[in-house]
Amino acid sequence: MSCRGKDQNGDDVVKPYTPTTLDSDLGYFELIIKMYPQGRMSHHFREMQEGDYLAVKGPKGRFKYQPGQVRAFGMLAGGTGITPMFQVARAILENPKDKTNIHLIYANVAYEDILLKEELDELTSRYPNRMSVYYVLNQPPEGWDGGVGFISKEMIQVHCPAPAEDIKILRCGPPPMNKAMAAHLQALGYISEMQFQF
């Protein structure tokens, strides 16, 4: 959905966000918002007080998930690109009739940048045979046992389902990451029908 607000100069700003709630969460929606010091929409959210109104438009989007649509999803997320992945994962795992498996690779700069970590870890512990998460950090802390650097072709080969007609790779992240992931996926044999970019 799109949210509209005012930046620090009083100019209108519109930015898209993916709710982390599902259609079954009636009467409210939740957004994950990363606050940037110079962010135009961040300024609006910083200024908001409880009880204020927020102009929103939507829902919108090109991705329509149907239960059992694929055998497995590979998900490649960077930073705030986790929000559509989290929403899809919840929709799959909270539907007892849906047997789709989820293989998520989630990249960030530092450990403290990992959004929704508790919620993701809870999903993997509740559904250990259905969901896996591989965290990748560019600046890992001492003793880190996850991935280091950027998502590589080798990480995709190890942690995502192999190319097949009944799998799909979803990706969402900053533009340089999306470009790199498209190249990796093509090199690994994932044709365009097996991919979707949010």
Rank of each mutant, 00 (worst) to 15 (best):
N178I: 02
M131R: 06
L26D: 10
T80P: 01
P141C: 11
R40N: 07
G78Y: 03
Q87I: 14
Y135P: 05
A183V: 15
E119Y: 01
E47A: 14
M155I: 08
P19N: 06
R130H: 04
R126A: 11
M85D: 05
P19S: 07
Q8R: 15
K153Q: 14
P19Q: 07
A110Y: 00
A89K: 00
E30S: 13
S42G: 11
Y111R: 12
D7R: 08
P175R: 12
E142P: 08
G143P: 08
M41V: 04
D52A: 09
I105Y: 02
N178D: 09
T124V: 14
F29R: 10
P128R: 01
M41Q: 04
R126P: 06
N138T: 15
M75D: 06
L26Y: 02
A187I: 05
C160Q: 06
P16D: 10
W144V: 04
D113L: 12
T18F: 06
H184R: 07
R40Y: 03
M75E: 07
D166E: 11
P59D: 03
N138C: 12
L26C: 11
Q8N: 14
S42Y: 05
E122M: 14
E50Y: 03
D98L: 05
A182S: 13
A164I: 04
G189H: 07
V14R: 12
I169K: 11
R171P: 03
M131T: 00
K97R: 15
H103N: 14
A110D: 10
Q66K: 14
S192W: 01
R90D: 12
P84E: 01
P96M: 05
V109F: 08
E142W: 01
A91P: 05
H103M: 13
